[in-house]
Design a binder for these strands. Structure first.
Lengths: 212, 212
DNA sequence: ATTTTAACATACAGCTGCGTTTGTATAAAT
DNA sequence: ATTTATACAAACGCAGCTGTATGTTAAAAT
């Protein structure tokens, strides 16, 4: 039964969406192509028609979602509204809110966190790393602006602030995603951000000396 | 060629150590029992003599390492030296130093971080979770003591401080382990801890209001 | 109206890794 | 000194998954 081009494109994307669900449910390396086909309501023939193998399917899945972790900063920041640190804090908090409300993103992120990157999937890792680096650079520029506006506490450097923020965000999201979403991501996240940015803003650097 | 009991025990542990290396190098689900056997210099027969299957081998590997993330607090804390917050900070920093100096721990942690837990490996996840919970509780008690000694800034609660510290530690270690150890874990980690604990100690809560 | 080709379903061959079985030499038990 | 059980090596069978080849139907192209 030959389908029309639109129909074909639809089955293709339905296969991708099915892969997303199955990868999320069973793990990438534990799912077979037939699993994906069944979940999509087609046969392996259709899957192999649209994708050459599982790695390719994974790649296309990764590309199908619009810039998984791109933004977070790029949009709101850069244009000097007013308080830079407040903008970063707001952007980070909003990003958490979006993640908390978007189940597809949650699945994608979980898959990317979990899957074992063995040789074949290295392009994905590299792309992730590249996006990460761009994102880090953007954050550092923002914190540098905060510094030049004398808004960043003297005990922080733009680099250390960037790293600490990113570590906290990553740990937060990992724990939430991988351990059953057992707390309110946005609420707890915003609270943590509030404290952290409070420290970013501290003028009097009363850094305690680590003992011994 | 029947071996003596001591020899047998040695091949058993050599298989476990081989599994550790191969799991780390190729990922758990991408390694076959023959891979492990080859890396250990034996045949699959020996592997299947000592372990019933790959899951069992993984479990035994997990059990063979003395409490992967147990401690970090339990030892130094609890006994009231003096400054509680300093003790926690020191314990966390020391823990980072130990991780940075112990390649076996690095491998184990990397394996545990990125392996796909599918049904069979759930016991490992549960045990991890249990250790995590005990650890969190221990941290919360320590921060509670800090609070009762009026050493914890008023804007923090023992719970929020615990969570933030754990998130940062987790993000820090994840990034370091999974992305090629491209920075100095102990140095950068201690610096981040210094800033964070500085915030923990802040008396004047100048929490900025998140905009909008 | 035919021909071609896209979009699949179905069938097939091949291999890989798994778990088991069998063989065997030797340590340990009697 | 036998016997027995242990600690493996080697061989076997097989189920599952992959990739491809072939079949089929209908949409496009001519």
């Amino acid at each position: 039964m030959r389908r029309t081009k639109a129909e074909a494109e639809e089955t293709r994307s339905s296969i991708i969406r099915a892969a997303e669900r199955v990868f999320y449910a069973k793990g990438v390396s534990n799912t077979t192509m037939e699993d994906v086909a069944n979940a999509a309501g087609v046969t392996r023939g259709a899957v192999y028609w649209h994708f050459s193998n599982k790695t390719d399917l994974f790649l296309e899945l990764y590309n199908s979602v619009p810039m998984p972790q791109e933004d977070m900063i790029a949009r709101e920041i850069e244009q000097p509204g007013r308080e830079v640190l407040c903008q970063i804090e707001k952007a980070a908090g909003d990003w958490l809110g979006e993640l908390a409300g978007d189940e597809q993103r949650q699945r994608i992120f979980s898959i990317l966190l979990r899957c074992e990157y063995g040789e074949e999937l290295m392009p994905v890792l590299e792309k992730q790393q590249e996006v990460d680096d761009r994102h880090t650079a953007s954050l550092e520029r923002a914190f540098s602006r905060a510094r030049s506006e004398d808004a960043l506490g003297t005990s922080w450097t733009p680099q250390s602030a960037t790293r600490t923020l990113r570590w906290m965000m990553k740990g937060l999201c990992s724990e939430w995603l991988l351990f059953g979403r057992r707390f309110d991501l946005e609420a707890q996240g915003r609270e943590g951000l509030k404290h952290l940015f409070s420290s970013f803003r501290e003028k009097a650097a009363s850094i305690g000396s680590p003992p011994d």
